[in-house]
Simulated assay, not measured.
Amino acid sequence: MKLRKASLALATGLALSLTLTACGGGSGSDDGKITIGIKFDQPGVGLKTADGEYTGFDVDVATYVAKELGYDAKNIEWKQAPSANRETLIRNGDVKFVAASYTINDKRKAEVDFAGPYFLAHQDLLVRADDDAGIKKVEDLNSKKLCSVTGSTSAQNVKDKLAPKADLQPFGGYSECLTGLENKAVDALTTDDSILAGYAAQKEHQGKFKLVGLKMSDEPYGIGLKKGDKELRDKINKALEKMKKDGSWDKFVKKNFGAANYAYEPAPEITETS
């Protein structure tokens, strides 16, 4: 009798263990929850607001994808994914995936895999709405004051390759650049047009700034995931295709960037399939 009871207890324990394992979901997910990496400081793209809400195009895209993977919005745990930490978060399994203005390039693909792209951004310039500095093309930045966010390569790329006489003005962050632009301490700010549009669309900034509309680079945003996870990549790509077809992609773009009159590109073709 004791032996039968012990065998029954062992079988019950094994069944419970298998059930818990099945519910776990693997890297970045546990007990029906999923952890997703986003930016916390990019209005219109990925922002954690003062009241603890998460907003932006990447947030909407990631929420849609998570739902297609079987996770309700209430079960998403958002994790800050600064540019320098994205690959580490993915490799360590701290997140299931990253959607954080994450440009697909060969250097990053050596460390992680991507799904997508789901958006095509370009490096652009933000100027004052009245364009009193007369900046119509990148060469017009020569002798003009260009905001350079500490640690950013965008402004340096302009100076090195496109407008060598541009006067770089270092600031601690984009918000400081916007204040400098409004106060005429600088004449332009440069980074991805999606990020610039997000700032310009903020309620406190509406009508003050505009994008010049240059395309100084191509920045295809992808969803980063652990290298070799073909199953997850294929599922995310399927979700992204559905998002485009059912109109959600357009809705998300207009919701987050519409106030900036941003001439965005159509949803790009998905290329990260192998």
Rank of each mutant, 00 (worst) to 15 (best):
Phe97Tyr: 15
Val253Phe: 09
Lys230Asp: 15
Ala62Leu: 13
Ala121Trp: 06
Lys33Leu: 04
Lys74Asp: 15
Gly222Thr: 05
Ile195Gly: 01
Asp187Trp: 10
Asp192Arg: 02
Asn183Met: 08
Asp192Val: 03
Leu89Lys: 05
Cys177Thr: 08
Ala133Tyr: 08
Leu10Asp: 00
Ser175Asn: 14
Gly28Cys: 11
Tyr54Val: 08
Tyr71Cys: 12
Leu141His: 04
Leu8Lys: 08
Leu196Arg: 03
Thr179Phe: 00
Asp193Trp: 07
Gly52Cys: 11
Ser101Ala: 15
Gly224Val: 08
Glu204Trp: 08
Gln169Gly: 00
Thr179Glu: 12
Lys2Phe: 09
Lys251Ser: 15
Lys67Ile: 01
Gly228Ala: 09
Val98Ile: 14
Glu219Phe: 07
Gln42Leu: 15
Cys147Ser: 14
Asp130Thr: 07
Asn142Trp: 08
Glu53Cys: 01
Ala110Gly: 07
Asp140Glu: 06
Ala22Tyr: 10
Val212Gln: 07
Arg108Val: 05
Ala99Asp: 13
Trp78Phe: 12
Glu53Phe: 00
Asp167Phe: 01
Glu265Ile: 03
Val59Ile: 15
Thr271Cys: 07
Cys147Thr: 10
Pro117Glu: 01
Ser29Glu: 15
Lys226Cys: 02
Ala201His: 06
Arg108Tyr: 01
Phe257Glu: 06
Lys67Gly: 15
Tyr262Ile: 09
Lys74Ser: 15
Phe257Pro: 04
Thr35Pro: 00
Asp132Ile: 11
Ile76Trp: 04
Ala84Val: 13
Ala11Gln: 03
Leu196Trp: 10
Thr55Leu: 13
Gly70Met: 06
Thr88Cys: 00
Lys226Asp: 02
Lys137Arg: 13
Pro170Thr: 09
Asp132Lys: 15
Thr19Leu: 14
Tyr221Val: 01
Ala11Asn: 00
Gly32His: 08
Trp78Ala: 11
Thr150Lys: 15
Asn183Phe: 04
Thr191Asn: 06
Arg233Leu: 12
Ile34Asp: 04
Lys48Val: 10
Ser175Phe: 11
Leu178Thr: 07
Ser7Arg: 13
Lys159Cys: 01
Gly52Asp: 08
Lys238Trp: 08
Leu10Glu: 01
Asp124Ala: 02
Ser27Ile: 03
Lys48Glu: 13
Asp234Lys: 09
Phe40Ile: 01
Leu225Ser: 04
Leu178Tyr: 05
Gly93Arg: 09
Tyr174Arg: 03
Gly26His: 09
Tyr221Ile: 04
Phe119Ala: 06
Asp218Phe: 01
Val212Lys: 03
Lys39Arg: 15
Ile38Trp: 00
Gly37Asp: 11
Lys210Trp: 13
Gly213Ala: 09
Pro117Tyr: 00
Lys96Glu: 04
Cys147Pro: 00
Phe40His: 12
Gly44Leu: 12
Gly13Asp: 05
Ala260Ile: 13
Leu162His: 02
Lys215Pro: 05
Thr150His: 05
Glu111Ile: 01
Ala166Tyr: 07
Val65Met: 08
Leu18Lys: 03
Leu18Asn: 12
Leu196Asp: 07
Gly180Asp: 11
